[in-house]
Simulated assay, not measured.
Amino acid sequence: MAHLSFTPIDSQFTTPVPDSFITDKMLSASATMIKVYLYVLYAYQKKLEDFTFASVAEKLDILESDVLKALQYWDEKDLLTLVHDPSSDNWSVLFASHASVPPKGQEPLPDREASASVQGADSKIIRVEQKPTYSPEEMACYKNDPKIAHLFEESQKILGGPVSSANLSTLFSFYDYYRLPCDVILYMLSYCASNGHRELRYIEKVAQDWSDHGIKTVDQAKDHVATFTKWRPILRALHESRLEPTDEQLIYFRRFLEEYQMPMELVLNAAERTYDNVGRANLNYMDSILKNWYSQGIRTLKAVEAEDARFQNSRQSGRKTASAGSLNNFKSSFDDQDLDLLKKQALDRTFDERSQS
């Protein structure tokens, strides 16, 4: 049997690769996945500048979406950590120590230490200029995948009609860019459609939110929906059409229910008053109502009605007092001589009218 021998080379022109990648992870990965990992690892170690999804895709002659898909694949395999910043749409690739698989007989680090190793790892920012677009030719190719064909077919049924080419591209991005499984996408479409939202522009916002929350199964999606379902009556009372509250609204809603410990019926009443009086969802105005009730110890609708009645009575009493004061002032402005003069003038007019007749 022939034996192989190795000649040492200058490490300046080499890129170290983790043993676990070669002996384990690489074996079940596709050629595209392997190319992306090796090139990104090379770019990271050589500190390449202007490193983007587009530059990787161009270098490897693949789609930008394939780059993202490969990085997410290696993230799941624990060879790197991919972090998305929605505010800037940047992605960070974190490489932990190459000694991710300990030598034989050596125990792995405890979880706390392993976590610290990852947190202390260097990172590489990958800028994403924009969400990938898909040509008709690419979409025709993707439709050959039975699960994608099923996704498109079922989506048209849920959305109530044919889906345009542009919308099919958006729909495919839920799977390819936002990394939502097909069954989660179909559940999301049904969820949005059942609440009167069939526009893919709106549904895409939901897709991004679910992707940011790491939703990978239908059960996770149901739990996520259930978490926000309790806020929907407040949104309706404020005449908001959205299915889930914004981060700012969520802060206020939790304050009403948890800090002020207000029953939901009072929160809804305050929301209705806010819209009736202001004409929009003014959270500061709504907060002032509930904060006032909280300070007065009001916790029931009956107590609210009693406070409303007391307020109305005090207003009416104030008006009567003000009216009486005005009349007294009016009377006191005339002396007896003035009243006698007015009576004489009225009597003279009456006499003149009768004389003329």
Score class of each variant (00 low, 15 high):
residue 56 V to I: 15
residue 58 E to P: 00
residue 36 V to L: 13
residue 63 L to F: 10
residue 64 E to N: 01
residue 52 T to D: 02
residue 49 E to C: 04
residue 28 S to L: 05
residue 31 A to H: 11
residue 49 E to G: 03
residue 34 I to S: 09
residue 61 D to S: 07
residue 65 S to L: 04
residue 50 D to N: 13
residue 51 F to N: 09
residue 31 A to S: 12
residue 36 V to D: 15
residue 62 I to D: 03
residue 32 T to H: 11
residue 29 A to C: 13
residue 44 Y to H: 15
residue 31 A to P: 00
residue 25 K to F: 01
residue 41 L to I: 06
residue 32 T to S: 14
residue 55 S to N: 06
residue 63 L to V: 00
residue 29 A to E: 12
residue 57 A to V: 07
residue 26 M to W: 09
residue 57 A to P: 04
residue 47 K to Y: 04
residue 42 Y to M: 08
residue 59 K to D: 06
residue 45 Q to V: 05
residue 50 D to R: 07
residue 34 I to K: 14
residue 64 E to R: 01
residue 46 K to L: 07
residue 60 L to F: 01
residue 32 T to G: 10
residue 27 L to V: 06
residue 64 E to D: 03
residue 55 S to A: 11
residue 61 D to W: 01
residue 43 A to E: 11
residue 25 K to D: 05
residue 38 L to H: 15
residue 27 L to Q: 08
residue 45 Q to I: 04
residue 58 E to Q: 12
residue 27 L to P: 00
residue 47 K to D: 12
residue 53 F to C: 02
residue 54 A to T: 11
residue 28 S to I: 05
residue 38 L to A: 13
residue 56 V to M: 10
residue 44 Y to N: 15
residue 39 Y to V: 05
residue 64 E to K: 01
residue 39 Y to I: 06
residue 23 T to C: 04
residue 30 S to Q: 09
residue 51 F to D: 10
residue 38 L to E: 15
residue 59 K to V: 02
residue 37 Y to N: 08
residue 63 L to C: 02
residue 43 A to I: 09
residue 43 A to Y: 07
residue 39 Y to W: 14
residue 61 D to I: 01
residue 27 L to E: 05
residue 42 Y to D: 14
residue 38 L to I: 13
residue 45 Q to N: 14
residue 32 T to N: 14
residue 33 M to N: 14
residue 41 L to A: 06
residue 49 E to F: 09
residue 23 T to A: 05
residue 38 L to N: 15
residue 31 A to W: 06
residue 28 S to M: 04
residue 44 Y to Q: 14
residue 39 Y to E: 12
residue 43 A to W: 07
residue 24 D to Q: 02
residue 55 S to M: 09
residue 28 S to E: 08
residue 58 E to H: 07
residue 60 L to A: 02
residue 49 E to P: 12
residue 42 Y to S: 10
residue 43 A to K: 10
residue 60 L to R: 01
residue 35 K to N: 14
residue 50 D to V: 01
residue 24 D to M: 00
residue 42 Y to T: 12
residue 45 Q to P: 05
residue 29 A to N: 07
residue 57 A to M: 06
residue 24 D to Y: 05
residue 30 S to W: 06
residue 36 V to Y: 13
residue 39 Y to S: 06
residue 48 L to D: 03
residue 28 S to K: 06
residue 31 A to Y: 10
